[in-house]
Design a binder for these strands. Sequence first.
DNA 1: CCAATAGTGTCTATCAGACATTATCTA
DNA 2: TAGATAATGTCTGATAGACACTATTGG
Lengths: 241, 241
Amino acid sequence: MSRVVDESTAAPGQRPDGILSPLLTVDSVLFTYHERLLKILLVKRSVEPEAGKWGLPGGIVDVAVDSDLQATALRKLVDKTGIAPTYLDQLETIGDRLRDPRGWSVTVCYTALIAHQACAYHVDTVSDVRWIALNKMRHLRLAFDHRELIKKAQERMRQRALYSILPGYALPELFTLGELQHLHELLIGKALQKRSFRRRIEQAGLLVDSGQKRQEQGRPAALYRLRNKSLSYRFVRNLEG
Amino acid sequence: MSRVVDESTAAPGQRPDGILSPLLTVDSVLFTYHERLLKILLVKRSVEPEAGKWGLPGGIVDVAVDSDLQATALRKLVDKTGIAPTYLDQLETIGDRLRDPRGWSVTVCYTALIAHQACAYHVDTVSDVRWIALNKMRHLRLAFDHRELIKKAQERMRQRALYSILPGYALPELFTLGELQHLHELLIGKALQKRSFRRRIEQAGLLVDSGQKRQEQGRPAALYRLRNKSLSYRFVRNLEG
DNA sequence: CCAATAGTGTCTATCAGACATTATCTA
DNA sequence: TAGATAATGTCTGATAGACACTATTGG
């Protein structure tokens, strides 16, 4: 940021100021909740480097197309799922000399949430995109440092689950409190007290009772939807970690 | 990430793959506590763009020198303060077409903390670097989107002050509980209950009593130092926002 | 003694944990 | 009726807020 620039001399394919900028990519850890499991979206890489391994949905920032970093994330996610996620937030940026065999590279990593049903059809039609349950990822070969990124995203979501109901954005528009609690339990890695969970949500007025019910076995459960303010609401007191 | 590359054809000054990467910079919001004020380090810009305005300490990532992004942040901070900050953590990455007149650019922004005394001498000797109190920044002309970055860093620190004693890393090695509390009050923007503040810190065992005392007026205050674990400790219950 | 600041005692309110109980559905 | 799941009642414990009180220094 301390170099005088004359853009008129710039040639295409190199920085007008002659500075070599690292390769800049954006990746997303897209979570969903399906069949009582926490899953993330992975893409089978078909080209080098790391061809054949699984990677996060993402790619190179295209300065001609993308107006900002989030636009890149969205573009790549829409490409794989058909729709925009209900939640998208920056996680962390990793950049160093070693993470990519091509040399110094940077990835801006996002965390995203989406309802499984909303994109199930599109994901099924694309052959190299798949939802993978987090507890079945151990033996998968993952590209670059993506396993680390996933771990960090998981930890971030775990914290969020302790003091907010943001994970609810991984559920369909209408959901039961049981589903939301189970999702939180998966993220936190521990069973929660039903009473505590429901009480705090009710007291903060974070959900709207749709009036509808859903029944599978036993007593029908009320179906709720998220309030807009739920995205940013933060409980003063955490659930037990 | 889906392009085959032949590095051997690369010419210097442009990406080997012919992709135009945005300008990549790193900036830091370095906080300190001095004379009962919260201050940040600003640098008077001497070159275009935005010459004459104040900006955050930072600069372009040098892939030949920096092993990773944090190394760039550190290098630039050491350059301005003479030493490494006691705390350095990534805040957020901003990247779009408009924030820099030179075109699409990205800044990876860090939040940092340091004791004022530790770098006071070095900062005083450099003419275009200055500690600016946060409450006296209104009328300053700031470069790029740096005012926004500062605001975001402040909000992040505010949250941290509610559930941790991380702000303590902006204090000298030995400090009083009164100083730490006042720093938290500045960040949170509200007076705190002395009893609550001390109780939770004591119970969590986050500080070590050095045995020394400091006296200015009235009863001498005990001098404490941070425990290592204090960096990551998170109270289950927040102070009132 | 007073002024000033450091540090403590103690009551209350809030809210999560624990777990028993009741409610509502199907078979 | 039994089995299953949803929802509630209610007690306990932990901890932050409020605020009065005591302690230790200098003048």
